[in-house]
Amino acid sequence: MDPFGIRAIEETNLHVLSARPWAPVVPDKPRSTSSLVSLRAGTASLLRWVADHVEPAPPAAPVAGESQNGVPTSGRVG
């Protein structure tokens, strides 16, 4: 007899019969959320860093009365 074949039949029967209404209820294992939180925060900071390098922020809007290079546009120079 093949012990692996017998074990496979037993496992298949347990899997199929677990969908029955009278199947024993096994509580879910508690999740470890601390690792997910740190993974999520690390991934978010990495994605933010990549986004800043791929598409930098647009330049700041010029202040009223100045041109793009910072020279006053009105009034006398000198």
Rank of each mutant, 00 (worst) to 15 (best):
A60Q: 06
G70Y: 06
S34E: 14
D52E: 05
W49D: 05
A51T: 04
V63I: 10
R76Q: 05
A19C: 10
S74A: 12
P58Y: 00
P24V: 12
L39I: 06
H53D: 00
P3C: 04
P21S: 14
E11N: 08
R31K: 15
V54D: 00
A19K: 15
S32Y: 10
W49E: 06
R20T: 14
M1R: 08
S34I: 11
P56M: 01
S38E: 13
F4E: 13
S67N: 15
D52R: 09
L36H: 08
V77F: 08
R7M: 12
A57R: 07
H53E: 00
V71A: 11
S38A: 11
S67K: 08
K29L: 15
P72Q: 08
R40V: 04
G5R: 14
I6K: 10
P24W: 12
K29W: 09
F4D: 13
N69R: 04
L47T: 03
P56K: 01
N69S: 07
I9Q: 13
M1K: 08
S74T: 13
Q68T: 07
T12C: 07
R31E: 15
N13F: 13
P59S: 02
M1W: 10
N13A: 14
Q68M: 05
A23Q: 07
P24I: 10
P24A: 14
P27H: 13
L36E: 15
R31M: 13
A19T: 13
S67R: 11
P62M: 02
S67I: 00
D2P: 12
V50P: 00
L39W: 05
W49C: 00
L14N: 11
M1S: 11
A51V: 00
S38C: 02
D52S: 03
T43V: 02
M1P: 08
A23W: 08
E11C: 02
A44H: 03
R48A: 03
A61E: 12
I6L: 12
H53W: 03
I9M: 13
D52V: 00
S32G: 11
R76F: 06
L47Y: 01
N69E: 06
P27C: 13
A57K: 09
A44G: 06
E55W: 03
G5S: 13
V71Q: 11
P72D: 05
V50W: 04
E55F: 03
T73K: 07
E55N: 05
P62E: 01
P3A: 11
P59H: 04
L17A: 15
P72E: 03
S32V: 13
R20W: 12
L17T: 14
A19G: 15
V37K: 07
G78N: 10
S18D: 11
V77M: 07
S74C: 01
L46F: 05
A61F: 00
P56W: 04
G65R: 03
P62I: 03
G42P: 02
I9C: 06
W22V: 14
A60G: 03
Q68N: 06
P59A: 07
P30H: 06
G78D: 07
P30A: 10
R40K: 08
P27N: 15
Q68W: 07
S45A: 09
R40W: 04
R40I: 03
G65Q: 04
I9D: 11
P56Q: 02
S35A: 12
S35V: 14
V37D: 05
V26H: 14
S67M: 05
R40N: 06
